[in-house]
Simulated scan of single mutants.
Amino acid sequence: MAKRANGEGTMSRRKDSSGKTIGWRASVTVGIAEDGSQKRRWVSGKTQGEVQEKLRALQSDLHQGTLADTDRMTVADFLNHWVAHKEREGNKPNTVQSYRDTVNRYITPKLGRVKLEKLRPLDVEHMLTGLRRDGKSTSLQVYALRVLKMALQQAVRWQMLPRNVADAVKPPKMERQEMQVWDRQQVADFLKATEAHPLHAAFYLALMTGMRRGELVGLKWEDVDLDRARLTVRNNLVEVIGAPIEGKTRLKKATTSSVRLEVSTPKSKASRRTIVLSKGTVQKLREQQARQKAWREHAAEAWTEQGFVFTTVTGALVWPSALAKAYTNLVKEAGVPPIRFHDMRHTAASLMISVGIPPKTVSERLGHSDVAFTLRTYTHLYDAQREEAAFDIADLV
Protein backbone atom coordinates (compact mmCIF):
# COMPACT_ATOMS: atom_id res chain seq x y z
CA MET A 1 0.00 0.00 0.00
CA ALA A 2 1.38 3.43 -0.97
CA LYS A 3 2.47 5.74 1.84
CA ARG A 4 0.10 8.64 2.50
CA ALA A 5 1.37 12.11 1.74
CA ASN A 6 1.64 14.79 4.44
CA GLY A 7 -1.74 16.36 5.03
CA GLU A 8 -3.68 13.46 3.54
CA GLY A 9 -4.57 12.17 7.00
CA THR A 10 -5.26 8.76 8.50
CA MET A 11 -8.37 7.34 10.17
CA SER A 12 -8.82 4.34 12.43
CA ARG A 13 -11.33 2.76 14.78
CA ARG A 14 -11.19 3.05 18.54
CA LYS A 15 -11.96 -0.26 20.23
CA ASP A 16 -12.56 -1.40 23.77
CA SER A 17 -10.91 -4.39 25.44
CA SER A 18 -13.37 -6.79 23.81
CA GLY A 19 -12.65 -5.49 20.33
CA LYS A 20 -15.92 -3.60 19.97
CA THR A 21 -15.76 -0.32 18.04
CA ILE A 22 -16.49 2.55 20.42
CA GLY A 23 -15.47 5.46 18.18
CA TRP A 24 -13.13 6.77 15.53
CA ARG A 25 -10.03 8.92 15.40
CA ALA A 26 -7.98 10.59 12.68
CA SER A 27 -4.78 12.60 12.37
CA VAL A 28 -2.70 14.72 10.02
CA THR A 29 1.05 15.31 10.05
CA VAL A 30 1.99 18.86 10.99
CA GLY A 31 5.77 18.54 11.33
CA ILE A 32 8.83 16.41 11.90
CA ALA A 33 10.44 16.01 15.32
CA GLU A 34 14.20 16.26 15.93
CA ASP A 35 14.46 12.45 15.96
CA GLY A 36 12.82 12.24 12.52
CA SER A 37 9.43 11.04 13.77
CA GLN A 38 6.21 12.65 12.60
CA LYS A 39 4.34 15.18 14.74
CA ARG A 40 0.61 14.71 14.33
CA ARG A 41 -2.63 16.44 15.29
CA TRP A 42 -5.47 14.15 16.33
CA VAL A 43 -9.27 14.41 16.36
CA SER A 44 -11.77 11.87 17.64
CA GLY A 45 -15.50 11.22 17.76
CA LYS A 46 -18.19 8.59 18.19
CA THR A 47 -19.08 8.17 14.49
CA GLN A 48 -17.01 7.86 11.34
CA GLY A 49 -18.88 10.72 9.72
CA GLU A 50 -18.19 13.06 12.69
CA VAL A 51 -14.45 12.30 12.56
CA GLN A 52 -14.33 12.68 8.76
CA GLU A 53 -15.79 16.16 9.13
CA LYS A 54 -13.21 17.08 11.78
CA LEU A 55 -10.44 15.62 9.61
CA ARG A 56 -11.49 17.76 6.62
CA ALA A 57 -11.39 20.84 8.85
CA LEU A 58 -7.87 19.91 9.99
CA GLN A 59 -6.73 19.40 6.40
CA SER A 60 -8.25 22.73 5.36
CA ASP A 61 -6.45 24.58 8.17
CA LEU A 62 -3.20 22.81 7.27
CA HIS A 63 -3.40 23.82 3.60
CA GLN A 64 -4.30 27.42 4.50
CA GLY A 65 -1.31 27.67 6.85
CA THR A 66 -3.45 28.21 9.96
CA LEU A 67 -2.65 24.84 11.50
CA ALA A 68 0.70 24.69 13.27
CA ASP A 69 2.51 22.21 15.44
CA THR A 70 2.09 23.32 19.03
CA ASP A 71 3.58 20.05 20.31
CA ARG A 72 0.83 19.95 22.96
CA MET A 73 2.27 23.21 24.32
CA THR A 74 0.58 24.69 27.37
CA VAL A 75 -0.34 28.32 27.73
CA ALA A 76 2.45 28.67 30.33
CA ASP A 77 5.05 27.25 27.92
CA PHE A 78 3.95 29.56 25.14
CA LEU A 79 3.87 32.68 27.31
CA ASN A 80 7.44 32.02 28.46
CA HIS A 81 8.51 31.81 24.81
CA TRP A 82 6.60 35.00 24.05
CA VAL A 83 8.23 36.99 26.87
CA ALA A 84 11.67 35.85 25.67
CA HIS A 85 10.70 36.94 22.16
CA LYS A 86 9.69 40.42 23.38
CA GLU A 87 13.08 40.69 25.10
CA ARG A 88 14.91 39.71 21.92
CA GLU A 89 12.87 42.29 20.01
CA GLY A 90 14.58 45.01 22.01
CA ASN A 91 11.65 46.16 24.13
CA LYS A 92 12.49 48.35 27.11
CA PRO A 93 13.75 46.24 30.05
CA ASN A 94 11.03 47.48 32.39
CA THR A 95 8.38 46.76 29.76
CA VAL A 96 9.61 43.18 29.40
CA GLN A 97 9.70 42.82 33.19
CA SER A 98 6.13 44.08 33.39
CA TYR A 99 5.05 41.42 30.86
CA ARG A 100 6.98 38.73 32.75
CA ASP A 101 5.50 39.67 36.13
CA THR A 102 1.96 39.80 34.72
CA VAL A 103 2.38 36.40 33.09
CA ASN A 104 3.93 34.73 36.16
CA ARG A 105 1.71 36.28 38.82
CA TYR A 106 -1.70 36.59 37.20
CA ILE A 107 -2.09 34.73 33.90
CA THR A 108 -0.16 31.48 34.37
CA PRO A 109 -1.74 30.61 37.76
CA LYS A 110 -5.17 30.78 36.09
CA LEU A 111 -4.48 29.45 32.57
CA GLY A 112 -0.99 27.95 32.60
CA ARG A 113 -2.01 24.29 32.48
CA VAL A 114 -4.47 24.71 29.60
CA LYS A 115 -3.22 23.39 26.24
CA LEU A 116 -2.62 26.36 23.97
CA GLU A 117 -4.62 24.88 21.12
CA LYS A 118 -7.58 24.22 23.46
CA LEU A 119 -7.73 27.68 25.01
CA ARG A 120 -11.21 29.16 24.64
CA PRO A 121 -12.81 32.56 25.35
CA LEU A 122 -14.57 31.10 28.39
CA ASP A 123 -11.19 30.18 29.89
CA VAL A 124 -10.12 33.81 29.58
CA GLU A 125 -13.39 34.94 31.20
CA HIS A 126 -12.67 32.56 34.08
CA MET A 127 -9.21 34.14 34.46
CA LEU A 128 -10.75 37.60 34.88
CA THR A 129 -13.34 36.25 37.30
CA GLY A 130 -10.59 34.62 39.35
CA LEU A 131 -8.56 37.81 39.48
CA ARG A 132 -11.63 39.75 40.60
CA ARG A 133 -12.33 37.21 43.36
CA ASP A 134 -8.71 37.51 44.45
CA GLY A 135 -9.32 41.20 45.04
CA LYS A 136 -7.23 42.44 42.13
CA SER A 137 -8.01 45.91 40.83
CA THR A 138 -9.93 46.54 37.64
CA SER A 139 -6.89 48.19 36.08
CA LEU A 140 -4.80 45.07 36.76
CA GLN A 141 -7.50 42.85 35.22
CA VAL A 142 -7.55 45.06 32.13
CA TYR A 143 -3.76 44.98 31.84
CA ALA A 144 -3.59 41.19 32.27
CA LEU A 145 -6.14 40.77 29.48
CA ARG A 146 -4.20 43.18 27.26
CA VAL A 147 -0.95 41.27 27.79
CA LEU A 148 -2.69 37.96 27.02
CA LYS A 149 -4.21 39.41 23.85
CA MET A 150 -0.80 40.63 22.70
CA ALA A 151 0.75 37.22 23.31
CA LEU A 152 -2.02 35.28 21.56
CA GLN A 153 -1.87 37.65 18.60
CA GLN A 154 1.78 36.67 18.24
CA ALA A 155 0.70 33.01 18.32
CA VAL A 156 -1.61 33.76 15.39
CA ARG A 157 1.22 35.45 13.48
CA TRP A 158 3.41 32.42 14.15
CA GLN A 159 0.54 30.27 12.84
CA MET A 160 0.29 28.40 16.10
CA LEU A 161 -3.38 29.36 16.44
CA PRO A 162 -6.04 30.06 13.81
CA ARG A 163 -7.47 33.00 15.80
CA ASN A 164 -7.00 35.07 18.93
CA VAL A 165 -9.59 33.74 21.39
CA ALA A 166 -8.98 36.64 23.80
CA ASP A 167 -10.40 39.07 21.22
CA ALA A 168 -13.85 37.70 22.05
CA VAL A 169 -13.51 38.83 25.69
CA LYS A 170 -14.44 42.37 26.69
CA PRO A 171 -12.24 44.02 29.31
CA PRO A 172 -13.85 45.03 32.61
CA LYS A 173 -15.26 48.54 32.57
CA MET A 174 -13.04 51.02 34.35
CA GLU A 175 -14.37 54.11 36.05
CA ARG A 176 -12.37 57.11 34.95
CA GLN A 177 -10.70 58.67 37.97
CA GLU A 178 -10.76 62.41 38.29
CA MET A 179 -7.40 63.91 37.40
CA GLN A 180 -5.56 65.45 40.36
CA VAL A 181 -3.68 68.67 39.59
CA TRP A 182 -2.53 71.76 41.45
CA ASP A 183 -3.84 75.21 40.70
CA ARG A 184 -1.50 78.15 40.12
CA GLN A 185 -1.31 79.15 43.77
CA GLN A 186 -0.51 75.61 44.89
CA VAL A 187 2.22 75.37 42.26
CA ALA A 188 3.69 78.63 43.54
CA ASP A 189 3.48 77.45 47.16
CA PHE A 190 5.25 74.17 46.39
CA LEU A 191 8.07 75.82 44.43
CA LYS A 192 8.52 78.44 47.14
CA ALA A 193 8.80 75.73 49.81
CA THR A 194 11.42 73.78 47.83
CA GLU A 195 13.74 76.65 46.85
CA ALA A 196 16.52 75.51 49.19
CA HIS A 197 16.34 71.85 48.13
CA PRO A 198 19.15 70.51 45.86
CA LEU A 199 16.56 69.21 43.39
CA HIS A 200 14.45 72.36 43.28
CA ALA A 201 15.30 72.98 39.62
CA ALA A 202 14.12 69.46 38.72
CA PHE A 203 10.71 70.11 40.26
CA TYR A 204 10.53 73.51 38.56
CA LEU A 205 11.38 71.92 35.21
CA ALA A 206 8.75 69.19 35.72
CA LEU A 207 6.02 71.75 36.36
CA MET A 208 7.00 74.02 33.47
CA THR A 209 7.58 71.35 30.81
CA GLY A 210 5.73 68.20 31.87
CA MET A 211 8.89 66.10 31.56
CA ARG A 212 8.69 62.59 32.98
CA ARG A 213 10.63 61.52 36.06
CA GLY A 214 13.18 59.43 34.11
CA GLU A 215 13.60 62.19 31.54
CA LEU A 216 14.44 64.71 34.26
CA VAL A 217 17.17 62.68 35.98
CA GLY A 218 18.41 61.47 32.58
CA LEU A 219 18.91 65.02 31.25
CA LYS A 220 22.50 65.92 30.32
CA TRP A 221 24.06 69.37 30.04
CA GLU A 222 25.06 68.61 26.44
CA ASP A 223 21.35 68.48 25.63
CA VAL A 224 20.64 71.89 27.16
CA ASP A 225 21.19 75.16 25.25
CA LEU A 226 20.65 77.94 27.76
CA ASP A 227 21.55 80.70 25.29
CA ARG A 228 18.83 79.58 22.88
CA ALA A 229 16.49 78.58 25.74
CA ARG A 230 16.01 74.99 24.57
CA LEU A 231 16.61 71.47 25.74
CA THR A 232 16.35 68.17 23.92
CA VAL A 233 15.01 65.03 25.58
CA ARG A 234 17.29 62.19 24.45
CA ASN A 235 17.67 60.04 27.57
CA ASN A 236 15.45 58.27 30.07
CA LEU A 237 17.03 57.03 33.29
CA VAL A 238 15.23 53.87 34.44
CA GLU A 239 15.51 51.42 37.31
CA VAL A 240 15.71 47.95 35.79
CA ILE A 241 14.61 44.96 37.85
CA GLY A 242 16.89 41.95 37.36
CA ALA A 243 17.81 38.61 38.85
CA PRO A 244 18.73 38.51 42.56
CA ILE A 245 22.38 38.93 43.53
CA GLU A 246 23.73 35.76 45.08
CA GLY A 247 24.41 36.15 48.79
CA LYS A 248 22.64 39.49 49.12
CA THR A 249 20.02 39.69 51.87
CA ARG A 250 17.49 42.18 53.15
CA LEU A 251 15.97 41.89 56.62
CA LYS A 252 17.91 38.62 56.97
CA LYS A 253 16.18 37.15 53.93
CA ALA A 254 17.61 36.47 50.47
CA THR A 255 16.55 39.15 48.00
CA THR A 256 14.17 38.05 45.25
CA SER A 257 15.47 40.55 42.70
CA SER A 258 18.05 43.25 42.09
CA VAL A 259 17.70 46.77 40.71
CA ARG A 260 20.17 48.65 38.56
CA LEU A 261 20.19 52.04 36.86
CA GLU A 262 20.22 52.15 33.09
CA VAL A 263 20.37 55.13 30.73
CA SER A 264 17.83 54.29 28.06
CA THR A 265 16.15 56.14 25.22
CA PRO A 266 12.77 57.84 25.78
CA LYS A 267 9.70 55.60 25.72
CA SER A 268 8.59 56.54 22.19
CA LYS A 269 9.67 58.43 19.08
CA ALA A 270 7.46 61.35 20.04
CA SER A 271 9.13 61.47 23.46
CA ARG A 272 12.44 62.39 21.80
CA ARG A 273 11.63 66.07 21.52
CA THR A 274 12.98 69.60 21.81
CA ILE A 275 11.34 71.88 24.39
CA VAL A 276 11.47 75.67 24.36
CA LEU A 277 12.19 77.06 27.82
CA SER A 278 10.80 80.13 29.55
CA LYS A 279 13.10 82.82 30.97
CA GLY A 280 12.33 81.63 34.49
CA THR A 281 13.21 78.03 33.63
CA VAL A 282 16.49 79.10 32.03
CA GLN A 283 17.32 81.03 35.20
CA LYS A 284 16.60 77.97 37.37
CA LEU A 285 18.92 75.85 35.21
CA ARG A 286 21.69 78.46 35.44
CA GLU A 287 21.30 78.36 39.22
CA GLN A 288 21.54 74.57 39.09
CA GLN A 289 24.72 74.88 37.02
CA ALA A 290 26.26 77.18 39.62
CA ARG A 291 25.15 74.91 42.48
CA GLN A 292 26.70 71.90 40.78
CA LYS A 293 29.94 73.79 40.20
CA ALA A 294 30.19 74.50 43.93
CA TRP A 295 29.54 70.82 44.71
CA ARG A 296 32.27 69.80 42.27
CA GLU A 297 34.83 72.09 43.87
CA HIS A 298 33.92 70.97 47.37
CA ALA A 299 33.96 67.24 46.50
CA ALA A 300 37.33 67.53 44.71
CA GLU A 301 38.60 64.03 43.90
CA ALA A 302 35.41 62.45 45.20
CA TRP A 303 33.43 64.04 42.34
CA THR A 304 32.22 61.72 39.59
CA GLU A 305 31.67 63.66 36.37
CA GLN A 306 28.99 62.09 34.17
CA GLY A 307 27.50 65.16 32.55
CA PHE A 308 24.02 64.99 34.08
CA VAL A 309 22.07 68.10 35.04
CA PHE A 310 20.69 66.67 38.29
CA THR A 311 23.12 64.78 40.51
CA THR A 312 24.04 64.17 44.12
CA VAL A 313 26.60 66.40 45.80
CA THR A 314 29.35 64.03 44.56
CA GLY A 315 28.14 63.85 40.96
CA ALA A 316 26.41 60.47 41.25
CA LEU A 317 23.19 59.78 39.38
CA VAL A 318 19.87 60.54 41.04
CA TRP A 319 17.67 57.45 41.07
CA PRO A 320 14.11 58.10 39.83
CA SER A 321 12.75 56.53 43.03
CA ALA A 322 14.91 58.91 45.13
CA LEU A 323 13.53 61.89 43.21
CA ALA A 324 9.98 60.67 43.87
CA LYS A 325 10.69 60.11 47.58
CA ALA A 326 12.17 63.58 47.98
CA TYR A 327 9.12 65.01 46.21
CA THR A 328 6.69 63.19 48.54
CA ASN A 329 8.45 64.56 51.63
CA LEU A 330 8.50 68.08 50.23
CA VAL A 331 4.79 68.00 49.39
CA LYS A 332 4.06 67.34 53.07
CA GLU A 333 6.35 70.18 54.15
CA ALA A 334 4.80 72.59 51.64
CA GLY A 335 1.28 71.88 52.89
CA VAL A 336 -0.15 71.51 49.38
CA PRO A 337 -2.63 68.77 48.38
CA PRO A 338 -0.77 65.45 47.93
CA ILE A 339 -0.65 64.37 44.30
CA ARG A 340 1.55 61.77 42.58
CA PHE A 341 4.83 62.81 40.99
CA HIS A 342 3.33 61.95 37.61
CA ASP A 343 0.47 64.35 38.37
CA MET A 344 2.97 67.20 38.10
CA ARG A 345 2.99 66.31 34.40
CA HIS A 346 -0.79 66.73 34.33
CA THR A 347 -0.41 69.97 36.28
CA ALA A 348 2.03 71.25 33.65
CA ALA A 349 -0.51 70.42 30.93
CA SER A 350 -3.21 72.21 32.93
CA LEU A 351 -1.05 75.32 33.22
CA MET A 352 -0.27 75.32 29.50
CA ILE A 353 -3.93 74.94 28.58
CA SER A 354 -4.99 77.68 31.03
CA VAL A 355 -2.74 80.25 29.34
CA GLY A 356 -4.07 79.33 25.89
CA ILE A 357 -1.21 77.27 24.45
CA PRO A 358 -2.59 75.38 21.39
CA PRO A 359 -3.29 71.66 21.84
CA LYS A 360 -0.71 70.65 19.23
CA THR A 361 2.02 72.55 21.08
CA VAL A 362 0.93 71.04 24.41
CA SER A 363 1.06 67.60 22.80
CA GLU A 364 4.58 68.17 21.43
CA ARG A 365 5.93 69.52 24.73
CA LEU A 366 4.54 66.51 26.62
CA GLY A 367 5.87 64.04 24.04
CA HIS A 368 2.49 62.55 23.14
CA SER A 369 2.28 60.47 19.98
CA ASP A 370 -0.56 62.57 18.55
CA VAL A 371 -2.66 65.57 19.47
CA ALA A 372 -5.84 63.44 19.61
CA PHE A 373 -4.45 61.65 22.67
CA THR A 374 -3.80 65.00 24.35
CA LEU A 375 -7.34 66.18 23.63
CA ARG A 376 -8.84 62.95 24.98
CA THR A 377 -6.70 63.03 28.13
CA TYR A 378 -7.34 66.67 28.98
CA THR A 379 -10.77 67.14 27.43
CA HIS A 380 -12.22 68.50 30.69
CA LEU A 381 -9.53 71.19 30.82
CA TYR A 382 -10.62 72.50 27.43
CA ASP A 383 -14.24 73.00 28.55
CA ALA A 384 -13.65 76.62 29.47
CA GLN A 385 -12.08 77.30 26.07
CA ARG A 386 -15.07 75.68 24.38
CA GLU A 387 -17.39 78.05 26.22
CA GLU A 388 -15.28 81.02 25.12
CA ALA A 389 -15.53 79.79 21.51
CA ALA A 390 -19.24 80.68 21.39
CA PHE A 391 -19.68 84.10 19.77
CA ASP A 392 -22.24 86.19 17.95
CA ILE A 393 -21.90 88.23 14.77
CA ALA A 394 -22.39 91.30 16.93
CA ASP A 395 -19.08 90.52 18.61
CA LEU A 396 -17.34 90.82 15.27
CA VAL A 397 -19.05 93.91 13.77
Rank of each mutant, 00 (worst) to 15 (best):
R250N: 08
T255M: 12
E246M: 06
K269H: 07
K269D: 12
P244C: 01
A270Y: 12
A270C: 08
S258C: 14
S257Q: 10
S264H: 05
G247R: 02
K269N: 10
G242P: 04
L251P: 01
L251V: 06
E246R: 02
V259N: 00
K253G: 15
P266D: 09
S264R: 06
T256K: 13
E262Y: 01
L277D: 12
I245S: 05
A270D: 11
S271N: 11
T249E: 13
I245Q: 06
K267F: 12
I275H: 12
S271L: 07
K267T: 13
P244H: 01
E262C: 00
G242I: 04
S258T: 15
V263Q: 09
I275V: 15
A243N: 05
T265R: 04
K253P: 15
V240P: 00
E239W: 01
L261F: 09
V276D: 15
V263S: 13
L251A: 11
V240G: 03
G247Y: 03
A270N: 09
A254W: 06
A270G: 12
R272Y: 10
G247I: 04
V276I: 15
K248E: 03
I275Q: 15
K267R: 10
A243Y: 08
V259T: 01
L261C: 08
A254T: 08
G247V: 05
S264Y: 03
P266E: 08
A270L: 07
A254Y: 10
I241L: 02
P266H: 13
T249P: 03
E262I: 00
V259L: 01
T274L: 14
E239F: 00
S257W: 01
R260N: 01
K269T: 05
E262A: 02
A270P: 04
L277H: 14
V259Q: 00
I245V: 13
I275R: 11
E262P: 00
I245D: 06
E262M: 03
G247K: 03
R273V: 13
T265Q: 13
V259Y: 00
E246S: 12
A243L: 08
R250W: 10
T256F: 06
K252Q: 04
L251W: 05
P244W: 01
R272A: 11
V276C: 15
T274P: 09
E246Q: 07
K252S: 05
A243E: 06
R260A: 02
G242F: 02
T265H: 10
S258H: 13
K252M: 02
L251H: 09
I275N: 14
K252H: 05
P244M: 02
S264C: 02
V259G: 00
V238S: 08
I241A: 02
S257K: 10
T249M: 07
S257F: 03
R272T: 12
A254C: 09
V263R: 08
R273S: 13
P266K: 14
T256L: 10
L261A: 13
E246N: 08
K269P: 06
I241G: 01
L261R: 10
S257A: 07
T255I: 09
K253D: 12
V240S: 05
V263K: 07
E246L: 06
V276K: 15
A270V: 04
E239C: 06
A243F: 07
K267M: 10
